[in-house]
């Protein structure tokens, strides 16, 4: 469960964002839409604790993350927030499996190898365990990102344009997958997008203007 109250943010005096309040319970999907320059990514970064808002609160599972120190926030983020980014970045020197395990280790200190294998298998990546991320297709990379975001069973999954680089078929597959997994893992799923295919797919939408 994630909710926000009266969040404002400004890069400089001419671009000031005042974001509407968001509330997304666990197991549900919430879509944040809006054209470019409306602060979609900024909002997502604030939700993920990558940026601090100028005012307002981000509350994840009744914890106000704005009160955390930098180090505590890093730790909290690792444990409770899964991020699926617009572009898929990986640790290039690590295999697919190690990339997923690293996420677990950084958050909890456990390598969770079996769990990572199961999760990857679940996402149809069983044969890719020992490949380098660069050897995978874009669609496969996207699924590895999702596996990485879910390995710690976070309270919130934040996805930034998860479908922008995918074709129709794959876009719907990813959307289905995200929704299914968020229900399965009981996480609140927040998707930031301007993709009209997703706008048709999800009903719970908040539009930034």
């Amino acid at each position: 469960m994630i909710q926000t109250k009266n969040i404002t943010f400004s890069y400089n005096s001419s671009t000031v964002f005042m974001f509407p309040d968001i509330q997304c319970p666990e197991g549900e999907t919430c879509l944040i839409t809006g054209g470019s320059g409306k602060g979609k990514t900024t909002l997502l970064h604030i939700l993920g604790g990558l940026l601090r808002p100028e005012s307002g609160e981000v509350i994840i599972n009744s914890t106000n993350i704005e009160l955390f120190s930098e180090r505590k926030l890093d730790h909290f983020r690792g444990k409770n927030i899964g991020l699926v980014l617009q572009e898929n970045h990986f640790i290039e020197a690590f295999t697919v499996l190690e990339n997923v395990m690293l996420a677990s280790w950084l958050a909890s200190g456990k390598k969770a190898k079996e769990k990572a294998k199961l999760l990857l298998e679940h996402l149809d990546l069983k044969d890719q365990w020992y490949k380098l991320p660069s050897q995978l297709s874009v669609g496969q990379q996207q699924r590895v990102s999702i596996a990485r975001a879910l390995i710690n069973e976070p309270k919130v999954v934040l996805a930034d344009e998860p479908t922008s680089s995918l074709d129709d078929e794959n876009a719907f597959k990813v959307a289905d997958l995200l929704e299914k997994l968020s229900q399965e893992y009981k996480t609140a799923l927040v998707i930031v997008t301007h993709d009209s295919r997703l706008k048709e797919r999800f009903t719970n939408q908040i539009s930034l203007s």
């Binding site: 890093d74 730790h75 444990k79 970045h89 640790i91 690293l102 996420a103 958050a107």
Partner: peptide, 16 residues
């Protein structure tokens, strides 16, 4: 730097 940002997102501290 993306790798480092990624590590931070996943809960790595600056010290790490």
């Amino acid at each position: 730097k993306y790798e480092f940002a990624l590590l931070r997102i996943q809960g790595a501290s600056r010290l790490q």
